[in-house]
Design a protein around this nucleic acid. Structure first.
Lengths: 219, 219
DNA sequence: GGGGCATGAATGAATGTTCATTCATTCTTG
DNA sequence: CAAGAATGAATGAACATTCATTCATGCCCC
């Protein structure tokens, strides 16, 4: 009996005709996130990912061209989701300060929700300049652009000092958030990461602000 | 004739008795910085490093326990240098704002001086949580501590707002500088990185400041 | 002064392991 | 009973590390 119930066949229904593709692909990506976070991309074996996903090693290659492709896909999917979620969250926020606050919160909420994902994003994706450049020139650029526009809007509204360089300010805010995420991920303590968003925003808004301080909400 | 002048024997003089050790070790570390920066740690072969250093592959193992050890040594030496240089630069600066400014400048000057080093520090060292944790729990902790103390001093002097969390502020400043360095390293343009220190500091000091703004120096 | 000799640095070919990837075969399902 | 999904053993290349050998140096004794 060479088949000890490998995966409980999940009772396919009619619409599942092309569902299995998404199912397995998704399972492999989830497993990969976990395994890469655990061992690091280079030390992780494709066979481990396959095992964690409950499929055979060869199956991975039915859904991904290569191990690299697996990491890249992970990254692309997450970034697309994140940017879509981000744009949605900005709808209805007109005050530039509020827009920045939402961006920051979302950034940290998303990473704080899934530690494996945080590890992959804060560590594994930065393994090689190859990945970094790819990341940097596409999604990071877009992300920084969104922040920059909010800063520019703030300047136009007279809320932020005119002499601030919006591009630099965007990098600074991103860098601060990124560092918070990295610290959280490396820390053994499991504090709520999203609270750091307010800390960062408070300092940032004071920094760019033309007034003494537009404090968040606390009396 | 299996010996096509492998390396020109560099005419040793008396004092060289124990010099070769430092020489070679150093040469290998330099070469490793370059090769790791070029191909990434995992893709770089020890043989490449050896070739770049002008020694045989086996020789690397006379000076380093393993490939990992080579990366760790690189990192430890640089951090020791940097922290020593940093502490020295702070001597004589009593104003907390001035201390922060010197820290920021030095941080970016050092990385901006050597692109290969910047790549290794901004990318290669972050390959695995193993290295990250090591880095984070030792040198980064120390570095953040230095920044935090300057912030606390600023608060004690009434220059910075009392409600600022100094630990968080230190992470924010570090994160912002780190992002500037990463951006510079990934950018094709070769602008002077150290100028970003003032940009960051300006925003940061506004952010923490209890006054409208302690502007740097420009009229 | 000079001709071996001991020392240990340096070499680089060989080793052995570790995987990513392939593909002939088996299984599932409609 | 096709068609195509899935399997997992086999393959082969890549590479860290080792180690038997070579080489350079300085020392000592004649």
């Amino acid at each position: 009996m060479p088949r000890p119930a490998p995966v409980p066949p999940p009772a396919r229904r009619a619409a599942d005709v092309r569902a299995p593709i998404a199912d397995k692909r998704d399972a492999i990506m989830r497993a990969a996130t976990h395994v890469f976070a655990q061992h690091g991309f280079f030390n992780a074996q494709v066979a481990d990912v396959a095992r964690a996903a409950g499929v055979a090693a060869g199956t991975v290659y039915l859904y991904f061209r290569s191990k690299d492709d697996l990491l890249v896909s992970l990254f692309e999917r997450t970034m697309k989701d994140a940017i879509a979620e981000g744009r949605a969250a900005l709808v209805g926020a007109t005050d530039p300060r509020e827009r920045l606050r939402r961006i920051a919160r979302l950034h940290l909420e998303r990473l704080g929700r899934d530690r494996d994902l945080a590890v992959v994003f804060q560590v594994e994706l930065r393994q090689s300049t190859k990945f970094m450049e790819r990341f940097s020139s596409s999604y990071l650029r877009e992300y920084l652009g969104i922040i920059r526009e909010a800063v520019e809007a703030g300047q136009a509204a007279g809320l932020f000092r005119a002499e601030i360089n919006p591009t630099a300010a965007a990098k600074i805010l991103f860098g601060a958030l990124d560092e918070m995420a990295t610290n959280w991920m490396l820390s053994r303590r499991r504090y709520p990461l999203e609270n750091d968003a307010d800390t960062v925003l408070d300092l940032f808004l004071h920094g760019v602000g033309s007034r003494p301080a537009p404090t968040g909400g606390a009396a």
